[in-house]
Design a protein around this nucleic acid. Structure first.
Lengths: 205, 205
DNA sequence: ATTTTTAGCGTACACTTGTACGCCAGAAAT
DNA sequence: ATTTCTGGCGTACAAGTGTACGCTAAAAAT
């Protein structure tokens, strides 16, 4: 019966990934992660780790990819909600904030990788953020009928403010979060409103 | 002759601080710093470290404070330049970008502390950023004659975009930096322009 | 039925880490 | 002149790290 072996392997691979995610928190970031601790948490011998990843870094990149994938799926669902409910900014923020609470570890690794030590990590999460910007940029350029470049600049500012707010909010209680979210909503609106005015200035100059 | 001792002590204290700054880079962040390495770099025995700081964390907080102080001084000089030259956004960005290159390590530790593992660190840099926001907020509320709350929201968005751009730019070559800086300038202008429009919306609702 | 492959284990090794302890020389205080 | 204080050193230790190596059992391939 072929496949039993591969099945089991995948299972402990998941265990390693889960173990790594579990150890990520506000007080224990990826760079403080140890191969031995992760292996222990996953219930395997330290040396068995190498049967699945050549490095801790390789595991880390897997985490980043998974977190990014999850967040992108979320974005897609958000856009569907937008089509139904209308309000772009509010639903986007709401969905994003949901993600923070339901997938805390996943967001944490994106944050940590963004400002972390490894070039590969930073590149990976930068790529991920670029995806968001590109998608939002498309949306803006066709809904505002403005140039792609100008849409990009707006989208970049908005995505970065959102991520920033996420970083700020992740260690806060629910009540505090609302305040940040409300301010964020206004800030995003400042940008879209400002775009309508500024585009005239730019084309006039 | 009293004071010789204290003088020497201050000297090696500076050596420790310098050593720590020196080891901060894109590939070596504060959490990977070791007491022994720092001591070695400073040219003293590992155990002598404790004559100056009880912890690596205590050293770290010192670094954050120094970096923050430096950046605040910079802000002050920027405001003087603004009084002379006029353009708020451009001179601010320019001064900030200068800071990045002339005091790379100092900015690095602010970045790393912001998303780091230690609550104290995060609190320290958050306090530092709050200073900026407060100062910019004052400036905005009196030059736009708008409410303090509304000015704060603008200032918050702007400062965060600036810091973000700094993080992005610090590992880039000069040519790349200009692109980011130019985009940043437009984004800040989006916000100020948007503010003029949005404040009417808000007061109308 | 026999051979090959491989996920996982245990042992072992060379390092690095933080820090407790006691000593010393020289500055400071008496 | 004598005592006290203290910045710095060396030794020592327990703990944790990554990983090389060889083994085993069981799945897969022959």
């Amino acid at each position: 019966m072929p496949g039993v072996r591969a099945q089991q392997k995948e299972k402990t691979r998941r265990a390693l990934i889960q173990a790594a995610f579990k150890q990520l928190s506000a007080n224990h970031d990826f760079s403080n992660l140890s191969l031995r601790e992760v292996a222990r948490e996953a219930g395997i011998a330290p040396t068995s780790f190498y049967r699945h990843f050549k490095d801790l870094d390789e595991l880390g990149l897997t985490l980043v990819d998974e977190a990014g994938l999850l967040l992108r799926q979320l974005m897609r669902s958000a856009r569907q909600r937008i089509a139904l409910e209308g309000s772009v900014i509010n639903t986007s923020i709401e969905t994003f904030m949901d993600f923070l609470t339901t997938h805390e570890s996943e967001f944490r690794i994106l944050l940590q990788a963004r400002s972390g030590t490894s070039d590969d990590f930073r590149a990976a999460v930068s790529r991920e953020i670029m995806h968001f910007i590109a998608e939002l940029s498309d949306y803006i350029s066709q809904s505002q009928k403005c140039s792609h470049d100008f849409a990009f600049i707006q989208a970049e500012a908005m995505v970065k403010l959102v991520f920033n707010a996420g970083a700020e909010v992740i260690d806060m209680a629910e009540e505090q979060r609302r305040l940040v979210a409300d301010r964020l909503a206004i800030q995003l609106r400042l940008i879209t409103n400002g775009a309508a005015v500024t585009i005239k200035q730019l084309s006039a100059s």
